[in-house]
Amino acid sequence: MAVQSHRRWAALAGWCALCFAAGGIGAVASVDARGFYADLVRPEWAPPPSVFGPVWSVLYLLMAIAAWRIGLSNATGARPALVAFVLQLAVNALWSWLFFAWHLGAASVLDIGLLWLLVVATLVLFWRIDRIAGALLVPYLAWVSFAGALCWAIWRANPTLLG
């Protein structure tokens, strides 16, 4: 029984490591983001830069717990659901590179649109297996929806900086 419990906690640690690694990959692309973001024309409803780190930290933790719950299930759809999860995580990490490192506005908008679709698909797949796991992705979907609108607005307001 103790071995089983140890494996469960190790699996949670693994999902946390994967999610926070994706966040870390994005953070590397955002090293110089403060100055770049300050130079951008942003809508009045854009949050201050200090909001992004804490929000993403909570979201990555919720995502890891959701994936962990699916990983623990023996449901037939668990494997495809986790593949969708990992795929959306990769698309998530790519966004910071497109926007902050490479200043590709149109590509970042397309990426976040694809991310939104993948998050919806993942949420639906998770929900079918474990409603709590699906519900844990709802804040992520809400934030990606908001971030998509923000990305679009910033891209449209900054055609020279985000060509």
Rank of each mutant, 00 (worst) to 15 (best):
L117K: 07
G23A: 15
P159Q: 01
W116N: 09
G14H: 07
A11W: 13
W127R: 07
L161P: 03
L72A: 06
L114V: 12
A67T: 01
L87Y: 14
L125Q: 05
L87H: 01
W143M: 08
P49F: 15
Q4L: 14
W152G: 02
H6A: 15
W9H: 08
S145I: 01
V144Q: 06
I154K: 05
E44T: 04
A38H: 13
P139C: 07
A147H: 13
L72H: 04
A66V: 00
L72W: 02
L115N: 10
G134R: 03
A157I: 04
L82S: 11
A78D: 08
A67G: 10
V28T: 08
A153I: 05
G163V: 00
W56P: 10
V86E: 05
A22P: 04
A106N: 04
G77L: 11
G113W: 13
W152V: 04
V91K: 12
S96A: 15
H6N: 10
V144D: 06
T76Q: 09
L61M: 13
R34V: 04
G35L: 11
I132G: 03
N92S: 14
P54T: 10
P47T: 00
A64M: 06
L87I: 00
A101Y: 08
L87S: 05
L62P: 11
L12S: 07
F36W: 11
V51T: 04
I112E: 00
A142Q: 01
M63P: 04
L72M: 06
V28F: 15
R8H: 09
L89E: 03
F146S: 11
A10S: 14
A78S: 14
